[in-house]
C-alpha cells in the first residue's frame, strides 16, 4: 500500500544533461511561434521580405545604371546589382534575425511575460532560447529563399553555387540571433534597445555592402573586417559567383564561433534572469 502511495506522490528524477535548464522540448516552443506568427504577424513577415527587394531595385538597377560594372570576388567584372545583391541578402538575414531575437524577445520578456509562463511548465530556459532562435532561422530561410529567387529572375545569378547562399544565410542569421538574444537579456528599457539600431545601421552601410573594402584606409579596413556583417557579405558574394579562397573558410568559422558564444551566453543569461 505504501508503495502505491509512494509512486503517486513522489517523482522519478531524470538524469538528463543540463537537468534544470533543458527538457528536450524545443519543438513545443518552435511550433507555438509558428502558430502565433501565422495567426497575427504575417504582414510583418511579408514586409521583411519586400524591404531588401526594394533596396535591390533602387540601388542595383537605379544606381547601378550609373555605376556600370564592378570587379567581383574573383576580379572579373560583374553588374553592380549582382555585386550588391548577395550583400543585401546578408543584411536581410542579419535584420530578420536581429529583429526576432532582440525587439521580439525584449517584448515577450518584459511585457507579454510569455517566457515566465513557459518556464512554469516542464520547459527549461534552453528549450525556450533554442525554440525562439529556430523560429528566427525559419523566417531567415524563407526570406533568403525568396530573395535568391528574385535574384535569379533578375538574372543576377551566374553560378549554381549561388543556391548555397540559402543555407549560408541561415548560418549568418543563427550567429546574429544567438548573440542578439544574449544582448537583449541585458536590456531593461526602450532607450537601451535603441542602441541596437545605432549599431546595426552603420554596420549595414559600411560593411563593404555597396562598394569594395579597398576604398577605406587600412586601419578602418581592419575594423570592418572584425565585424560579423562583413564576413556574411563576403561569404555570400563568393557563393554567388562560385569563386572561393582560403578566406571562405575563415568567414564560416567566424560564424560558427559566434553561434557557439552566443548560445553559451544566452543560456547563462536566461538562467540568471529566470532562475534567480
Amino acid at each position: 500500500m505504501t508503495q502505491v502511495l509512494a509512486s503517486n506522490m513522489s517523482i522519478e528524477p531524470s538524469r538528463r544533461f543540463l537537468g534544470s535548464l533543458y527538457s528536450g522540448n524545443v519543438r513545443a516552443v518552435f511550433s507555438r511561434g509558428v502558430k502565433a506568427t501565422w495567426g497575427t504577424n504575417w504582414a510583418i513577415m511579408v514586409s521583411g521580405f519586400v524591404e531588401p527587394v526594394l533596396y535591390l531595385i533602387a540601388m542595383g538597377i537605379g544606381l547601378g545604371s550609373l555605376v556600370g560594372e564592378i570587379a567581383g570576388p574573383g576580379g572579373e567584372p560583374i553588374a553592380y546589382a549582382a555585386y550588391i545583391a548577395p550583400a543585401l541578402l546578408a543584411v536581410s538575414a542579419m535584420n530578420g534575425a536581429v529583429y526576432d531575437s532582440t525587439w521580439n524577445v525584449f517584448f515577450k520578456l518584459n511585457f507579454a511575460k510569455l517566457y515566465e509562463g513557459m518556464l512554469y511548465t516542464s520547459l527549461g530556459p534552453l528549450d525556450v532560447a533554442l525554440g525562439e532562435i529556430l523560429l528566427a532561422l525559419l523566417r531567415g530561410a524563407m526570406y533568403a529563399t525568396g530573395f535568391t529567387a528574385v535574384m535569379g529572375v533578375m538574372g543576377l545569378i551566374t553560378s549554381p553555387w549561388a543556391l548555397l547562399m540559402i543555407p549560408a544565410s541561415v548560418v549568418i542569421a543563427f550567429g546574429f540571433a544567438s548573440f542578439g538574444m544574449a544582448i537583449t537579456s541585458y536590456m531593461k528599457t526602450f532607450q537601451q534597445m535603441d542602441w541596437i539600431n545605432f549599431v546595426m545601421l552603420p554596420m549595414f552601410l559600411f560593411s563593404a555592402t555597396f562598394y569594395p573594402l579597398s576604398v577605406y584606409p587600412e586601419p578602418i579596413q581592419w575594423f570592418i573586417q572584425a565585424l560579423p556583417l562583413w564576413h556574411g557579405v563576403e561569404l555570400l558574394r563568393q557563393l554567388n559567383v562560385g569563386v572561393f579562397g582560403p578566406d571562405t573558410l575563415l568567414h564560416i568559422v567566424y560564424f560558427l564561433v559566434m553561434i557557439l558564444l552566443g548560445l553559451v551566453l544566452t543560456t547563462f543569461r536566461l538562467r540568471k534572469l529566470f532562475l534567480k
Binding site: 517523482i11 531524470s14 507555438r32 511575460k113 510569455l114 512554469y120 511548465t121 516542464s122 527549461g124 532562475l275
Partner: peptide
Amino acid sequence: HGPEVRAHLGVVPQQDNLD
C-alpha cells in the same frame, strides 16, 4: 529537477500571463 517537478505543478501567477 525543475522540469520534472513542474510537470506535476499547476501555476496561477499573480498577473495573468496568457499568450
